[in-house]
Nucleic acid binder design. Sequence first.
DNA 1: TAGAGCATGTAAGGCGTTACATGATTTC
DNA 2: GAAATCATGTAACGCCTTACATGCTCTA
Lengths: 189, 189
Amino acid sequence: MARVKGKVSTLGFALLGLIRMQPASGYELRRIFAETPMAGYSNSPGAIYPALQNLKMLGLVREQAGIGRTGREKRTLQCSAAGTKELLAWLRQEVTPESLHRELDVVLLRFSFLDQVHDLGWSMRFLEQFQDAAKHYRAQLANSRTQMKPYQPLHGQLALQNGEQILEAHAKWANTAIAAIQHERKKRR
Amino acid sequence: MARVKGKVSTLGFALLGLIRMQPASGYELRRIFAETPMAGYSNSPGAIYPALQNLKMLGLVREQAGIGRTGREKRTLQCSAAGTKELLAWLRQEVTPESLHRELDVVLLRFSFLDQVHDLGWSMRFLEQFQDAAKHYRAQLANSRTQMKPYQPLHGQLALQNGEQILEAHAKWANTAIAAIQHERKKRR
DNA sequence: TAGAGCATGTAAGGCGTTACATGATTTC
DNA sequence: GAAATCATGTAACGCCTTACATGCTCTA
């Protein structure tokens, strides 16, 4: 039986975002997770159906009963007004160095749904925050590496360097993304 | 009460690797997680102490009772022969595109402990596998991006590009790491 | 003498994983 | 007629999170 939970998990937001882009059934959502590179979210029914039930209980999605092309029931889910509100609030969270450190994947998931905010100005703000956070965090790593350079074993040092280079790549990506957004902005005017 | 578990979790291996580098108490290990950039592992006692108890029960670490500099007990943990064997087997796992996709952090954690294998040849093998996997996975992402280019929303495309650029950065890092390992190799001869 | 740091834990709860259950239809 | 695909779930289990419990010593 489904339990009542007060909060929406990351998987819940991932589902909500997809549903809002395009109403879908649980099975269709599973296929999206299985077939696209959508982060690392599992396509296991044991994760998805409970998460969907939770969204339903919280009133964030509505269910449209129907029949699939096999005789069996097929329930299409749609995002409600409350769901939209919840999703947008989640999307508009600030990007901090902390969030990059402990939930980079979630931050990137939020970015990939940012179309839905319908405000390219917000996308720019997001990317600037993202870049700042990446640079900030990178500086921290570089600092801790040079500090304990003589004491650290070789592989540990190289692993830290990996972190620095990856953060640098994120910062660079932010530049290309900013350019793409600005280009899109001009087109829309 | 501690339950008996058959397997060692990732956190368990992280602890085991640290203990083998340098015997330590639970508290010291917590501080390492809290103060160094060691992946994203939590420093919460509710995670660490149960994991340590599990390592003890599996016979992978031994406990040396003693007294800390406050009058209170301080239990220093040491890696046993069985622990070493288990750790090395874990370290020597193959690096596949799959593992990069769903547990990159774990792969990098394994790399950072690779000093303990005492075989730079193995480090080279690891890095070559890592680079192959990164390139392979990157090609996959690039492929899926160009395939659905016209249908995908802007932010989704940019998020995919992020994945590609990050994987490219990982491949580049592997080159610098390979150079560093080769340099170290010459020194040791 | 109050608070920060040392030191080790337990309890409740949440969420994901793997595996199983069920049953219809389309495809080989 | 067997296997893959459509379609929705439950059960057991594992592991992490947050919060709480305990008690000592050093420092301001």
